[in-house]
Amino acid sequence: MDAVRPGAADDVIATCGLTKRYRGGQLAVDGLDLTVPAGSVFGFLGPNGSGKTTTIRMLMGLIEPTSGTARVLGRPMPRAARTVLPQVGALIEGPALYGHLCGRDNLLRYDAADPTADPRTRRARVAGALDRVGLAAAADKRARAYSLGMKQRLGLAAALLRPRRLLVLDEPTNGLDPQGMREIRTLIRELAADGTTVFLSSHLLDEIEQVCTHAAVMARGRLLAQGAMTELAAGARDRLVVSTPDPADAARVLKEQGVADVTTDGGQVTGEPPAKDLAEVNAALVAAGVRVRGFTLRRASLEDAFMALTGEGSDVAG
């Protein structure tokens, strides 16, 4: 599972050995080689604390990498921030707003901070962005009075003030209800259909599965895998699933038969099938007196791939 197209000229994000050690000594990102192809909806998946936000901060020029390089839209970051960032919309670690300003004035301010934004079209673009995230009715309300979901939408609206080549969304559905999550997913699909590359970080596998064409999996600051979703799922091995009222005996026999990574869950024993004919494995179970209710080979899903990559899976498989 290597880079999709290593070094391709139209890669929207390309990092090489990107590393960040915070001042406290915490190694947050460790030798990251990330390749995000143009036009993809790229899922950046990893449990909390795996270094997703740190990577995004480096890509956006907010923090200096300890070592390694990052290119965004073909240009080096953070050096080319002034030319790159106007073409990038970003939601980083949740929205941040001026509580004493209304939603509209928040967007007017963020747009005024963009040196390439045309002040003559500012009001119209702000109104358009508010409309797009469904906040037009609350535009004149102080942001302090917004709900978490509304703040998240306003943050998204700020990222959509202008047509962007790249959208970087760091956990955009955090704090949203299922309806809000659906709306965000719909929005992401619309934007992708317009040709915007979307870089979406999440600790939720199913969120990534639902919208992404490509993904990368992070754990403890390291990149475990990246590629097209189909490739990633294919990389996971199928699992042998045995249903039985005698799980302890079954597990023992399966291990004897060369089945790896045997786990028992109630009346189900699963493991990685060995290289030999599975009929022999089944015969061995029966010969040992294990009562077998079911004996199947389960096709690998992305979740299996993810579990295999991140180890136990801990809190990540949402």
Partner: peptide, 18 residues
């Protein structure tokens, strides 16, 4: 503290200008 600084910087306002 409010987090608005990171959004001004990715706008990008530019550190010296800001």
């Amino acid at each position: 503290g409010a987090g608005t600084l990171r959004y001004l910087l990715v706008a990008p306002a530019g550190r010296t200008r800001l």
